[in-house]
Design a protein around this nucleic acid. Structure first.
Length: 479
RNA sequence: GGCGACGUGGCCGAGUGGUUAGGCAACGGUCUGCAAAAUCGUGUACCCCGGUUCAAUUCCGGGCGUCGCCUCCA
């Protein structure tokens, strides 16, 4: 039974979709004016994993993630670089897609761009004005926050407390300082679309209300995004959509925690961010994905390269076992272990599902993987007979594909994994390995060890196994 | 100021009213020509102070600390 934490109710709820086994899911994407940082990576990986798990549970998931492609920051960037808005947004959407592909994030079913839905936004503004929830003022359109009774229900805020916050925009044009813009008049040189209120452009919140409704219809099942979107973005989406349509907007609200640097939120405005590209210069994308999944999605996650490398070592433990299993040899003397194998595999499957059913607890699910790995290592050290070994391989493959499908890790073969950081020519390496083999056969251990040590200094570890010598390459890191 | 989250062993990080989380790192044993991997063992973890309870790291209250939202932000 899948439970998830719903920001709206503030507690874990049993998940039941609106329509039998169909799940409709909308996640707020990025504003495309720069490369994605690892905070974006976390959010994307979290919701990708949720989507994957829902699929694993047998739901038919429709997944929408938008691009905000009209916004002050995009305009600013375009002006700075003397480029058109479209050049900027096309470029960064492409970069975004490349980054997400590397992180093994499945492409959404729909990736709407705000500028493709301007008509719908204008219509929604008109509807809100008509119903008395919005008003035009000086070419802008504002939502009348106090006209919507439920305002604050998501972020648990009281309107008067909000006012006391003293950071609200003081704006002569608004009737009430709490009101927010649905539509903004375009200034000279800004992009704009013709509307009943003159040439203008949409406010930020309205795009998600329109795109989600047009693609999924409302209400839909799951709406997600980073914690920072709870207020005002999602609160405002709810106000717009529910005021206009007179019905519920989205049923389950899921928000991921931040990536921190030294305990502080990573953000563009603080300037303390690493882009996905920065990080992927140092580690394989799968390491970053794994690292981001080692913490529960709602908790803050402190990023550092040390922690990232620790995650790399942990992930390598899994690949090591897969490698050992692939190349394991049997001896027939041991009794049949089939029941034991079943027990280990079945227990893992049960534990893994329990972990994921509990609000997508990937940290716990990963610990289940390590429990499995330990059991498999123990079996391997007992040296199975050939039938058992084959059976273990088959059943392990089964759970490996569950892990791969749900968490999006273990996508490589062990030899790919251990080869990816190879800094020397593989032919050269094989020659040295052969040379060492001959030395070992001649009991010239001094020479054999010299070769081992030489390779070790280049990050290549040699392993003498019954099936011959193989190697594992690790990235050499300074310091 | 308002609202909210969090504080777990050297580090990362789950979780629970009483029974081993897991990983990384360290040290010792087994294995190995030497290694590597694996495995076994070791380290007496739950911010502080009260309260509830037979029993609290886990519940309640207070304190301290850290962080987030209230402004663009995943």
């Amino acid at each position: 039974m899948l439970k998830l934490f719903n920001t709206l109710s503030g507690e874990k709820e049993i998940f039941t979709p609106l329509e039998d086994n169909k799940v409709k899911m909308y996640v707020c994407g990025v504003t495309v004016y720069d490369y994605c940082h690892i905070g974006h990576a976390r959010s994307s990986i979290v919701f990708d994993t949720i989507r994957r798990y829902l699929k694993y549970k047998g739901f038919d998931v429709t997944f929408v993630k938008n691009f905000t492609d009209v916004d002050d920051k995009i305009i600013k960037r375009a002006n700075e670089e003397n480029k058109s808005i479209n050049e900027i947004t096309d470029f960064f959407i492409k970069a975004h897609d490349e980054d997400m592909d590397k992180l093994n994030i499945l492409r959404p079913d729909y990736t709407p761009r705000a500028t493709e839905y301007i008509d719908g936004m204008i219509k929604l503004c008109e509807k809100l004005i008509e119903k008395g929830f919005a008003y035009e003022s000086n070419g802008d359109v504002y939502f009348k926050v106090r006209s919507f009774k439920d305002y604050g229900k998501l972020s648990k805020r009281d309107l008067d407390d909000l006012l006391a916050g003293a950071r609200v925009d003081v704006n002569e044009i608004k009737e009430d300082p709490l009101d927010f813009a649905l539509w903004k008049r375009s200034k000279e040189g800004e992009p704009g679309w013709n509307s009943p209120w003159g040439r203008g452009r949409p406010g930020w919140h309205i795009e998600c209300s329109v795109m989600s409704a047009e693609i999924l219809g409302i209400p839909f099942d799951i709406h997600g995004g980073g914690k920072d979107l709870i207020f005002p973005h999602h609160e405002n989406e709810i106000a717009q959509s529910e005021a206009a349509e007179g019905k519920e907007f989205a049923r389950y609200w899921i928000h991921n925690g931040f990536v921190n640097i030294n305990k502080e939120k990573m953000s563009k405005s603080l300037g303390n961010f690493f882009t996905i590209r920065d990080v992927l210069k140092e580690v394989d994308p799968e390491v970053l994905r794994f690292f981001l999944l080692t913490t529960h999605y709602r908790s803050p996650l402190d990023f550092s390269f040390d922690n990232l490398l620790e995650a790399e070592n942990a992930l390598e433990r899994i690949y090591t076992t897969i490698d050992e299993l692939d190349s394991a040899v049997f001896n027939n003397k041991k009794p049949v272990q089939k029941a034991k194998i079943d027990e280990i595999i079945d227990r893992f499957r049960k534990d893994f599902v329990e972990s994921m059913d509990d609000d997508f607890n990937t940290a716990s699910a990963i610990s289940n993987i390590f429990e499995l790995i330990k059991e498999v290592n123990l079996l391997l050290s007992e040296k199975l007979n050939s039938e058992d070994l084959n059976y273990l391989k088959v059943r392990f493959e089964e759970v490996k594909s569950i892990i791969r499908d749900v968490l999006g890790i273990l996508t490589k073969t062990p030899s790919e994994w251990f080869k990816m950081n190879l800094s020397i020519d593989e032919g050269e390496l094989q020659k040295l390995i052969e040379e060492r083999e001959i030395a070992r056969r001649n009991k010239d251990f001094a020479k054999a060890d010299a070769i081992r040590n030489e390779l070790k200094s280049k990050g290549v570890e040699l392993l003498d196994t019954p099936a011959g010598t193989k190697f594992r390459a690790r990235r050499l890191r300074g310091g």
